[in-house]
Design a protein around this nucleic acid. Structure first.
Length: 998
RNA sequence: GCUCGGGUGGUGGAACUGGUAGACACGCAGGACUUAAAAUCCUGUGCCCGUCAAAGGCGUGCGGGUUCGAUUCCCGCCCCGAGUACCA
């Protein structure tokens, strides 16, 4: 029988499901290997052809590792809480759980069709109570922990309380809020429980605090920094504003340094690591206190303004001081004379949006407050300005300005006529600032003559000595906002008593998402959970008293999208455990993810939060590893490849007073380029005239106009009716009413008219690469391709497209080649009458050579994630074996195993036809490569003269360098090139090349 | 601006540590089979100059360098993509 991919693929997908072929063992003598794909969000539109790219690669890898004798964990599940389902719910009133369920069903059907070897028995969904119970539980662990800097790890809050009871706040080195109080043990004990809780909240790793947040009014929720791009929400693109709100946050900043250092220990793509480094944004520098000059002000507010600087060595070059317009001291520092100016400036900056402010980066603006601070080392008066180039959110919101070394300060100084003092002997500051660290200091008092290294050390020592500064490390990363004012997320397991948050009892987990009448905020502006009736905390547990029987109010925010995905890889290890988030044994066996494949868009979101939670879980002894994802690969983005048709503008006919709305005219792409040239102008108008008879009324103005681009409108046409850029004209006419009577000017200049008259050529579409989306008619659906060519072809073609990491436009041209390959492969096992036929003879030398070449190649390729080159090599192997007329059972059986991770269905079928037991292929042994079969006794040496190859000579490989040289020189053709003269030099690389210099 | 990728035929791409550039596939051209088309099979296919051919020249973004030999290493520049951006 010919290759019947449909029957074969259905049959084996069913078999794998029925027999749970890919169920991973929790106990095994085999070494473990954990292959994970990034958690998909099941969106309503289903998969397009770009989505499975990474899944196919990881599946090939997983299948390969099974053949190599590993116990492979390769799970899949759904990150099923999220905004889109909720937006849809708001529009339609359908419960997000219902639409999510339907979307998951679509996803599952599409995934199953591709033949992945997932262990579906471990499927998880973040929105199922059995899962989010543990997300809530981890939240509780975070709430009950604080970060002890001396131990450099998270510890239980009870340990902190014990310390307070014994020693007060002395000796506590914690990552905590800025305004923590200092107290003695006695003072601590004297506090009321509420006061104590209030204080402890400042230490907890997840905490409630009034903070400035990204508020997105259109979505009705706050967003984390990584969910905001250029002042707009990443999902939906709605404007985002800054707002002060009481919010749950995660103290990720406690882990900033460990998150940074950990990057050096993991095998991730460099750009991804770089993105995380930038996001964390560690700066090493110093903080310096500048005393406020006005004595009176010092009494009323504080005595100093503190700055953070990475160039404390330039402190003698400070000629002015700038604070952010939002800085808390602006009001106090502004003198009556300057009040008008300052207020005008603040009003002006407030009007500017975040975006304007960024776009405006080059224009210098600011205003003088009228006040001064004192340089702590010179006691010189330094004027204080406000300017929006200083950000309130970074450092202390104040900078010491050194115009000689910093370009922004330089421009500011020029603009306001402030002095610019050089502090390095080799500094050149004529036209711009010079931030050099070379040379020796000048104008710098005790630092004069020192180098950068010496100077920095000296100035920090001096500042510390007089108590106005110290070395300091600053991070750009902020604590992550953890609450969302939305419905479709995990409820926060917290209730409020006397205005303070308390955890619900662990035995009351999961705290179920309540039903609401609408998925919108309440009339009073509370999140949607505020609509849930009778939703309050009344615990049977002894510790929690209910309040006059009514119960305590729950937290109404839900958790953000990244909560559920920050630990999910552990759940796969033990997906059905209802006692723990995963058992100790499971975690000890599976440890970490060996290979993680996914997109780079998660660089500063999921991948950072996951590392953070993992480190925390390790600190409290629940997991073993410091880093959860040992090796990570980014698959490239698959872009859309749009097909464009070129419609002739109506205007060319309006010139002649006629508008042919009924019969739009489209030009093939080659003609556009042709007719844009002046010399083809006549031909263009003549061509239009030949269309003329169809519309008796038309008169084409043979104007003086040379055709230009504006004459043609580019129109997107559905790529599914275009094959190799050629339009399927019949399908095109049927696709839409407006196309039915279109006139197509074909590539060769002939015309396809609606009446079907006189066509010869083809209509060729133009091409544009852009995002794959419905509106561009360039979405290619894997279902269609599978129906036409089968999953094995799709899998191999997606890999054949190019290196996994590279982004590229999807192009279905060429999929035929892969399909033909599989058919050719199938034919190796069959005779001319398509009957299964293999021979039991001893394999020939040539057959073994082909086989062992591919065995080695595929092994090497998979280990370095070069899947595209394997596909080519398979083609070469099958071509060779076809030429050898090979139908040798032994050879073909090994080939089946080798190919089975790429094209599993066809291989399973052939495996059984070869007489093996169904279902055993997945756990067969990858054939062992034997180099002996590849040994050659001759090699066709390329013989080159001055590096240019002239000919090839077959020379036995047994010959040594000297002998090869003699062999070559003895050759008559070689002598012809040498013109009888001896070469200056002969280079012989054994088994590679012969090169002669003349 | 900074950081990280990447520039190879008509197209996707290959070339392991410096050693025959363009494997494999698509497309295209020609041929076979067919009444015809599709499918299939065979042959050719980097560019230029040659009547076919032989022979030659040029070729991995551009300009240099190292080397017997460079897509690969070094220096300078150009272009494309991604990320990031007043971060003190």
């Amino acid at each position: 029988m010919d290759y019947q991919f449909k029957d074969i693929e259905q049959k084996w997908q069913q078999f794998w499901a029925d027999n749970q072929t890919f169920k991973a063992e929790d106990k095994s003598t085999k070494p473990k290997y954990y292959v994970l794909d990034m958690f998909p969000y099941p969106s309503g539109v289903g998969l397009h052809v770009g989505h499975p790219l990474g899944y196919i690669a990881s599946d090939i890898f997983a299948r390969y590792k099974r053949l190599k004798g590993f116990n492979v964990l390769h799970p899949m599940g759904y990150d099923s809480f999220g905004l889109p389902a909720e937006q849809y719910a708001i529009q339609t009133g359908q419960h997000p759980a219902v639409t999510t369920e339907a979307n998951i069903a679509t996803y599952r059907r599409q995934l199953d069709q591709i033949g992945f070897s997932f262990d579906w028995s471990r499927e998880v969904r973040t929105s199922s109570p059995g899962y989010y119970k543990w997300t809530q539980w981890i939240f509780m662990q975070l709430f009950n922990s604080w970060y002890n800097k001396s131990a450099d790890k998270a510890e239980s809050i009870t340990k902190l309380v014990a310390h307070f009871e014994k020693n007060g706040s002395v000796g506590v080195d914690a990552v905590c809020d800025e305004e923590v109080a200092a107290f003695t043990a006695g003072e601590w004990k004297a506090k009321t429980p509420t006061e104590q809780q209030e204080e402890l909240l400042k230490y907890r790793l997840t905490y409630l605090r009034e903070s400035t947040v990204n508020w997105c009014p259109a979505l009705g929720t706050v967003l984390a920094n990584d969910e905001v791009k250029d002042g707009f929400s990443e999902r939906g693109g709605y404007p985002v504003e800054q707002k002060k709100m009481m919010q749950w946050s995660m103290r990720i900043t406690a882990y900033a340094d460990r998150l940074l250092q950990g990057l050096d220990t993991i095998d991730w793509p460099e750009p991804l690591k770089e993105m995380q480094r930038n996001w964390i944004g560690k700066s090493i520098g110093a903080s310096v206190k500048f005393p406020i000059e006005n004595q009176e002000l010092r009494v009323r507010s504080q005595e100093f303004i503190e700055v953070f600087t990475t160039r404390v060595d330039t402190i003698f070059g400070v000629t002015f001081f700038v604070i952010a317009p939002e800085h808390e001291l602006v009001g106090e520092l502004t003198t009556p004379e300057q009040k008008g100016e300052i207020e005008a400036y603040i009003a002006q900056t407030k009007k500017k949006s975040e975006l304007d402010r960024m776009a405006d980066a080059k224009t210098v603006s600011g205003a003088f407050t009228g006040s001064y601070v004192l340089n702590p080392l010179t006691n010189e008066k330094v004027p204080v300005y406000i300017a929006d180039y200083v950000l309130a959110g970074y450092g202390t919101g104040a900078v010491m300005a050194v115009p000689s070394g910093d370009q922004r300060d330089y421009l500011f100084a020029k603009h306001f006529g402030l002095p610019i003092v050089p502090i390095m002997d080799i500094q050149n500051i004529e036209t711009e600032a010079d931030p050099t660290k070379e040379g020796r200091y000048i104008n710098s008092d005790f630092m004069n003559g020192l180098t950068y290294k010496e100077g920095t050390a000296a100035v920090i020592a001096k500042l510390e000595e007089i108590g106005v500064g110290k070395a300091k490390i600053n991070f750009r990363m902020r604590d992550a906002i953890f609450g969302r004012q939305r419905y479709w997320g995990e409820p926060v397991p917290v209730y409020f008593k006397e205005g303070l948050p308390h955890l619900i009892s662990e035995s009351d987990l999961p705290l179920l998402l309540p039903e609401v009448d609408k998925y919108l905020p309440t009339e009073s502006g509370e999140p949607p959970l505020g609509r849930a009736e009778g939703w309050s905390y009344k615990s049977q547990e002894s510790g929690v008293q209910s309040q006059e029987g009514a119960g305590y109010a729950y937290e109404l925010s839900t958790m953000p999208g990244w909560a559920g995905s920050s630990w999910y890889w552990y759940r796969y290890m033990d997906a059905h455990n209802d006692k723990e988030f995963a058992s100790k044994q499971a975690i000890e066996y599976w440890k970490d993810v060996d290979l993680y494949i996914g997109g780079s868009e998660h660089a500063t979101g999921h991948l950072l939060y996951s590392r953070f939670w993992n480190k925390f879980l390790k600190d409290i002894g629940l997991v073993i590893v410091e880093e959860p994802f040992k090796k990570l690969i980014n698959q490239g983005m698959i872009q859309g490849r749009s097909s464009i048709m070129y419609r002739l503008q109506k205007s060319i006919f309006t010139l002649a007073g006629y508008i042919p709305d009924e019969n739009p005219i489209y030009f093939s792409v080659g003609l556009i380029n042709k007719y844009l040239k002046k010399e083809n102008k006549k031909e263009f108008y003549n061509l239009l005239k030949t269309i003329d008879p169809i519309f008796p009324g038309i008169e084409v103005a043979e104007a003086n106009h040379v055709p230009e681009f504006g004459y043609f409108n580019g129109i997107h046409v559905d790529v599914n009716i275009v094959d190799n850029d050629e339009l399927d004209i019949n399908k095109f006419r049927k696709s839409r009413a407006e196309y039915e009577n279109a006139i197509l000017i074909l590539e060769d200049g002939s015309i396809s008219s609606p009446t079907g008259g006189g066509r010869e050529g083809a209509y060729i579409c133009g091409v544009e690469v852009e995002k794959m989306s419905k509106s561009k008619f360039n979405v290619v659906n894997p279902d269609d391709l599978i129906a036409r060519y089968g999953a094995d072809t799709l899998r191999m073609y997606e890999m054949f497209l190019g290196p996994l990491e590279q982004s590229k436009p999807w192009n279905t041209n060429g999929i035929e080649g892969v399909f033909k390959f599989l058919r050719k492969f199938w034919r190796l096992f069959h005779n001319d009458a398509w009957e299964f036929s293999v021979s039991g003879a001893e394999p020939t030398k040539a057959e073994l050579k082909s086989l062992h070449k591919i065995i080695r190649k595929v092994e090497e390729d998979i280990e370095r994630f070069s899947f595209n080159t394997s596909v080519s090599s398979f083609m070469i192997a099958v071509n060779e074996l076809t030429d050898l007329k090979c139908n040798n059972r032994q050879v073909l059986q090994d080939l089946v195993i080798t190919l089975s991770s790429y094209a599993p269905h066809i291989c399973e079928e052939l495996w059984v036809m070869l007489g093996n037991k169904a279902g055993t292929l997945s756990y067969a042994s990858y054939p062992k490569y034997n180099p002996a079969y590849l040994v050659e006794d001759e090699f066709a040496y390329p013989v080159s003269i001055n590096g240019k190859t002239k000919m090839n000579l077959n020379i036995p490989l047994s010959l040594e360098q000297k002998e090869v040289e003699e062999f070559v020189l003895a050759n008559a053709d070689v002598q012809k090139y040498l013109d009888g003269k001896p070469p200056k030099k002969v280079i012989v690389v054994k088994g590679r090349i012969v090169n002669m210099v003349v």
